[in-house]
């Protein structure tokens, strides 16, 4: 008898499993476009950066799965920072719309994923018990919100443009205006926190945090352009910010013809 390799069988259907490329793992993360853990120009990183090499592990089920969120997790005003903390009027500041898509490295939209955002108010002050900057709290501005992307990965929210503010790094360090973003993706190893900056801000090239990014193109991708076409006349300007999460070698819903 000839020794033959056993055919791979789909245990649920008891027939040979069709070949599909990809094992569902995530694309290897390109660490050269991310800031290194140890970036001494950003002083807080010095004591908070691991010094051993990271241990590389291939994606297992623990990495390609992640929490699933739905509209039940959100409230109706969660993506409206102009209204979600208003007490007796609108917050002070330039009204803006921020919108864009969450994509993965293959260019596909990431649907139904949770995007969270937070920021200082128009004067550069955070509503946080530990922020003591002299600019005043805005009684009508909380400074946080969240949205689920739609089927194409699209998200949007309304807010006021945050102000720059000083911080303790060098004696006269200022953060450019920015909005923090937290994004999930479908697998926990896609989890990402980043910051969006605004086109034309002169503080961008001298920011000790932003300049931890070694790759100029990667830094530029954090700067949102003015998007006049998406603005609302006589109401709000708009900025466009697309976010790219790691791609996946994936056909884990192989019985869905469109893949995942």
């Amino acid at each position: 008898m000839n020794a033959q390799a056993p055919a791979l069988r789909d245990p649920r259907l008891n027939r040979p499993e069709p070949f599909t490329p990809g094992d569902g793992g995530l694309f290897q993360r390109d660490r050269t476009i991310h800031p290194p853990a140890y970036a001494p120009g950003y002083k807080s990183s010095v004591l908070r950066s691991p010094r051993q090499a990271l241990l590389s592990i291939e994606s297992s089920i623990s990495e390609i799965t992640g929490p699933v969120f739905g509209h039940n997790d959100l409230g109706p005003l969660d993506n409206d920072l102009i209204r979600n903390y208003a007490k007796d009027g609108d917050p002070v500041g330039e009204r803006i719309i921020v919108h864009g898509r969450v994509l993965d490295e293959t260019g596909r939209g990431v649907p139904n994923t949770l995007v969270e955002f937070w920021q200082a108010n128009a004067g550069g002050r955070y509503r946080h018990k530990k922020d003591t900057y002299l600019a005043p709290i805005d009684p009508n501005f909380g400074g946080c919100g969240r949205a689920l992307t739609d089927d194409a990965g699209y998200y949007y929210f309304r807010t006021v443009k945050p102000g720059p503010y000083p911080w303790r790094n060098f004696v006269n360090s200022w953060r450019p205006a920015h909005i923090h973003f937290s994004v999930f993706g479908s697998g926990f190893a896609q989890r990402l926190i980043t910051q969006m900056y605004f086109e034309g801000d002169p503080l961008i090239p001298i920011c000790p945090i932003l300049t931890t990014i070694p790759d100029k193109a990667a830094l530029d991708r954090l700067v949102a352009p003015l998007d006049l076409n998406a603005s609302t006349p006589f109401d709000s300007l708009a900025y466009r910010f697309d976010i790219v999460l790691r791609g996946q070698r994936s056909t884990y819903f192989e019985n869905r013809p469109e893949g995942n």
């Binding site: 993360r29 390109d30 476009i33 991310h34 800031p35 950003y42 807080s44 990183s45 994509l103 993965d104 490295e105 293959t106 260019g107 969270e116 955002f117 937070w118 955070y126 509503r127 946080h128 530990k130 922020d131 909380g142 400074g143 946080c144 969240r146 923090h180 937290s182 990402l192 926190i193 980043t194 910051q195 945090i209 932003l210 990014i213 790759d215 193109a217 990667a218 830094l219 991708r221 954090l222 976010i243 790219v244 999460l245 790691r246 791609g247």
Partner: peptide, 16 residues
């Protein structure tokens, strides 16, 4: 596409 670069969550991550 290239993955979006990470940035620190900062000291006020709790807000969001």
């Amino acid at each position: 596409l290239k993955e979006t670069a990470s940035q620190t969550a900062g000291p006020y991550v709790h807000i969001g």
